[in-house]
């Protein structure tokens, strides 16, 4: 074709900034998740514990409301580190179901339909792809865990007065760190499983198996080999050890057998090892599909 007849021109128009490009994946991730009415309804249900907590704190500080309802709160339930830990335990498990529901499909479908190559052949790196996906989960889980917990902390501190907030500021840090650890663990694990098991349903099952079956296997290991190190595989157990440390809770507060004989460093190591292994799995799978760009 004569040069003068060539009318095709590559796009040279305005582009979105590179740093924010991953948000395209996040936006689509959110819209896909909330296409399901059931998922949306469950997300709303995840806010219920927050509302209950809010009502509880308000009732505690309002003698008028107590009198109106005919209840005397007294010191039956104190809002302290144990209260916040229990609140987070409930929210975390609800968040876990949320993750198990949404996360495997987010990434396994890209692999099953071979669309991952399309993403990675565009100006999107492995890290950006992952950040785009993880940010969806992290935002959702944040909205159901540490954000409501910190709001409750702030409200209680305000109502309690007397410098309670300043004295217990470390608890706000514990809430944030504890939740972030949980979010990182379940998000990365869910993503890694979704990458290796391309069928969404199987990926969800495997995630549940990791949190329910693996602890049972670890107990079998402890029982048969007469050891305690099987618990390294028991994620719900090790995360509780870490949380308990973060929330400065005395060992007596826990009824689980031999809970105190398991060292804190081993619990941290187990959680971090699971996170690192998940990142390794993700990286290995994504790297194999990345289109090299000059």
């Amino acid at each position: 074709m004569a040069v003068y007849k060539r009318t095709y021109k590559a796009y040279r128009g305005a582009m979105t900034p590179t740093w924010s490009r991953f948000t395209v994946l996040s936006r689509y991730g959110f819209s896909t998740l909330f296409e399901s009415r059931l998922f949306t309804a469950y997300t709303v249900v995840c806010i219920v514990p927050f509302l209950i907590g809010l009502a509880f704190i308000y009732l505690m500080h309002s003698s008028a409301a107590q009198a109106l309802l005919g209840v005397r709160m007294g010191n039956v339930l104190e809002v302290n580190n144990k209260w916040f830990l229990n609140f987070l335990a409930v929210e975390s498990w609800m968040g876990f179901v949320l993750t198990a529901w949404g996360a495997p499909g987010m990434i396994s479908k890209d692999f099953a339909n071979s669309s991952i190559q399309l993403y990675l052949s565009r100006p999107l790196s492995r890290a950006e792809y992952l950040v785009g996906k993880v940010s969806v989960l992290a935002s959702l889980l944040s909205l159901t865990t540490w954000i409501p917990a910190l709001i409750l902390f702030g409200i209680h501190a305000g109502l309690q007065g007397d410098g309670w907030g300043w004295k217990n500021l470390w608890m706000a840090g514990s809430i944030f760190v504890g939740c972030m650890l949980w979010i990182a663990l379940i998000s990365l694990l869910a993503m890694a499983i979704g990458v290796w098991v391309r069928w969404r349903i199987a990926a969800t099952a495997l995630l549940f198996a990791t949190f329910f079956l693996l602890p049972a296997f670890s107990e079998v290991m402890n029982l048969v080999l007469r050891t305690k190190w099987g618990r390294l595989l028991d994620l719900p157990y090790v995360i509780v050890i870490v949380w308990r440390h973060l929330f400065r809770i005395e060992p007596a507060g826990f009824s689980r057998t031999n809970v105190d004989s398991f060292p804190l460093w081993a619990a941290w190591m187990s959680v971090l090892a699971f996170c690192a292994f998940s990142v390794f799995l993700l990286n290995t799978r994504l790297k194999a599909r990345e289109v090299s760009r000059g």
Binding site: F212, L213, A216, E219, L223
Partner: peptide, 21 residues
Amino acid sequence: MMATIFQVYYLRLGIFFGCLG
């Protein structure tokens, strides 16, 4: 030990998840 493993691991979880799959 065998009874515990069978009842708690196999019956409640192992066969449960295996059959689920």
